[in-house]
Computed example of a mutant assay.
Amino acid sequence: MSQLHPRNKQSEVSMAEKIAPGNSQHTNPYRSDGKLYGFVCVVTGATQPVGKAMVAELAGIPRRSLHLRVLKFGFRPLRCPRSSIASQFPNTKVIPYPYHPTSEEATLGLIDDVLNAWGRLDVWTSSTGLLGSPSITSTGPTELLAAFETNAVPAFFALKYAPAAMIKTTTQRGNYPNATPKDVPYGSIVVVSSVAATYGGCWGLSFTMSSHAALGVVRAGVAVLKGTGVRINAVTAGQIDVGVDLEAAGLEELGKGQFPPVARQNVETQKRVVGLERAGRPEEVGRVVGFLASGFSSYVTGAEIRVDGGASVMNPLTVPV
């Protein structure tokens, strides 16, 4: 019996090496031959500044010898950055898709369309946001539910339905340029939220509560996804300059935004409370999403990566005397 142990152990190691996504010749980002791989990605919220940055980042990944070839994204209303992306990254096929991320039926329809067209799904990014009112006195049940529906429900739908498509494998090349087989089940879900998911005071009650719920989807998702080869992570952003100005819009318009306006903090305040002394840029969020979508983060799941310039570890209430 003892003579069988080394053989069994070797067999187990070999099996682990076979099924580990990082060891697949089609997914390892460190391949020496520099070949590109045919990932299919879905990006939601692509008309928001951060969503646009995510599209650009994912579309540009092949130029850095990672793996992406087909990029679908949901948007509302009907406008998208497809033409500029297509001209900038001709090797990436960008397909606009009229998708409502808070609809369960629309989510299932999008996944069906992706599988019917491409036969695989590899990355799903959920980037939706509704600030709502900054005041509790003007926040009722309807406004509260709307915040949860926009900020947390799309992440829940991604966790519930995307993995079943991500674990599908295919031995045939897809019907698009540079497609590759998918020989192991794997996938990456990235939920983009706010630092309001970890503490209060960023905006109003509904925004904070619903952002916490979005992060809860990620943390609960690790156990849900055990054994699937699918990872789920969160990017929580701090003060990001998305071009919204307090003076240029009324409270109602501001409440429909994805992140609080940077104008809430003047330059002097940013220098005092932000470690890097400035607001962030949408592309700085997009780069972290690109990392979590790629094979470079193959052992990262359930993580919350904070993109806030170090503000959350500062203490803005401390005043030097």
Score class of each variant (00 low, 15 high):
M1L: 09
L4M: 07
H5G: 03
R7E: 14
Q10G: 11
S11L: 14
A16P: 05
K18I: 12
G22D: 11
L36A: 02
Y37S: 03
V40W: 01
V40G: 06
C41I: 03
C41R: 01
V43T: 01
T44R: 02
T44P: 01
T44Q: 05
T44F: 04
A46T: 02
A56R: 03
A59P: 02
R63T: 14
R63I: 12
R63E: 14
S65D: 05
L71Q: 00
F73L: 03
C80M: 01
P81H: 00
S83K: 07
T92L: 00
V94S: 01
Y97R: 00
H100I: 08
T102M: 09
E105A: 13
L108T: 11
L108F: 04
D113Y: 07
L115D: 09
L121C: 09
G132K: 02
T139F: 09
P141H: 14
E143H: 10
E143P: 00
L144G: 04
T150N: 04
N151H: 10
A152L: 05
V153W: 11
F156M: 15
F156N: 10
A158S: 15
Y161R: 05
Y161D: 10
A162V: 08
A164C: 04
A165M: 05
A165S: 06
Q172L: 09
P177W: 10
P181V: 12
D183T: 15
V184E: 11
V184W: 06
P185M: 09
G187Y: 04
G187V: 03
S194N: 12
A197T: 10
G200M: 12
W203C: 05
L205R: 00
A220S: 15
V224F: 14
G227Y: 13
A234M: 12
A234W: 03
I240S: 08
D241M: 07
V242A: 08
G243Y: 10
G243T: 12
A248G: 14
A248S: 15
A249E: 12
G255A: 15
G257M: 09
A263Y: 09
Q265S: 11
Q265V: 05
N266L: 03
V267A: 14
V267W: 04
K271V: 03
V273C: 04
L276E: 08
E284Q: 15
R287M: 12
S294K: 07
S297Q: 09
V300P: 11
T301L: 15
T301W: 13
T301G: 13
T301D: 12
G302C: 11
V307C: 14
D308C: 10
D308H: 09
S312L: 12
M314P: 00
L317S: 15
V319F: 07
V319G: 01
V321I: 08
